[in-house]
Nucleic acid binder design. Structure first.
Lengths: 141, 141
DNA sequence: CCTAACCTTTAAGCAAGGTTGAAGGTCAAG
DNA sequence: CTTGACCTTCAACCTTGCTTAAAGGTTAGG
C-alpha cells in the first residue's frame, strides 16, 4: 500500500502520516523507487495514534508508549498510562460537575430576585455568587 | 487592584492577563498614569476563563460566550449564556464519560489475557480493541 | 535624590501539531 | 514520448496560547 491509499483508508492526509513518521511514531519500509510501502498494520498504528490523541495524549507521550514495532508494546507501561488518563478524566469530570452545579444554582438564584430589588443590584448580587464558582484546579500536574 | 495583585490572586502571570485582554476576553480601565485598574470582577472573569479552558474550550469559543464587560451582561443574556454553558458542559461530560469507560474497558481487557495466549497474540487482540476507542472529536466547532 | 519594585508597549520566540509549496523523480496509459 | 497522477525531500509557514526581552515610565521608601 502506498501513502496515498493509506491516507484515503485512514482519513488522514499524507502530510500528516509523513509527519508522524518524522516524529518517530511509525516506521515504514521503502520500495526500490523510494516510495513508502505500508502494510495493514500501519492502519492499526494510525488508529492507535489518533485514538490516543483523542484521549488526550500528546504525540510525545504516544511515542514513549509505542515502540516502532507495534507488537513490542510494553503492557505494563500501557496500562499505567491508561490508568493515569482515567484519573485525569475523572478529575476533569469532577470539576465540570462542580462548575455545572454552581452555574445551575446561579441560574436558579437569578430567577429568585427579591421583588423590590433593581435589576442592577441583582446583577451585582449574582456576580458576587459567580465569584465562588471556582473549581478544583490541578489539571496541569 | 493593579495587574500584579490580580496576577497573585488569580495565580496567573501578568503576561497572561494582558494576553487575554489583547484577545478581547477581558476589558479593563486605566488610571491616570496608564496602569490597569482591576475590580474584583476581573478575578471572576479570569476564573471563568481558566475553568472554560480546562473544560476544553478554546479562547475563541470563550470570547464568544463571554462579553468583555461582565457587568454589561443584562440578565436575559446572562441567563441565556449560562444555560448554554450548562448544555456545553453536559455535552463534554457525556463525551468524557464515554472516553473513560472505553479506556477502563480496555484496561480490564488487557488484564484478562486468556491463559494459553501468548503475549503477542494478546497485544494484537488489545490493539483491535484500541481501535474502537475514539470519542471526544466534535469538541471543536 | 536614588533605588527598587512596580507598571507600560512592542516585538520576538517557543512548543505542539500540522499544512503548503517548490523542485523534482516515477509510472501507467494513450 | 508525453501527460497526469502518483511519489520524494526540504524548508517555510500557520494557529494556539502563551512567555520573554528590550526599552522605558511611575512610585514608594530611605
Amino acid at each position: 500500500m502506498q501513502i496515498g491509499e493509506l491516507a484515503t483508508r485512514s482519513g488522514l492526509r499524507a502530510s500528516r502520516i509523513r509527519f508522524y513518521e518524522a516524529q518517530g511514531l511509525i516506521s515504514v519500509t521503502r520500495r526500490a523507487n523510494g516510495y513508502r510501502a505500508y502494510s495493514a498494520e500501519a492502519l492499526v498504528a494510525l488508529n492507535i495514534i489518533t485514538s490516543a490523541q483523542d484521549a488526550g495524549f500528546t504525540l510525545g507521550e504516544i511515542r514513549r508508549l509505542m515502540p516502532g514495532d507495534l507488537s513490542g508494546w510494553r503492557e505494563g507501561e500501557l496500562v499505567g498510562a491508561l490508568r493515569k488518563r482515567v484519573d485525569d478524566i475523572r478529575a476533569i469530570e469532577r470539576r465540570l460537575a462542580q462548575t455545572r452545579l454552581q452555574i445551575e444554582a446561579l441560574i436558579a438564584d437569578i430567577g429568585d430576585r427579591p421583588d423590590g430589588m433593581t435589576c442592577e443590584a441583582n446583577t451585582d448580587r449574582v456576580l458576587k455568587q459567580f465569584k465562588s464558582v471556582r473549581p478544583i484546579e490541578a489539571l496541569d500536574e
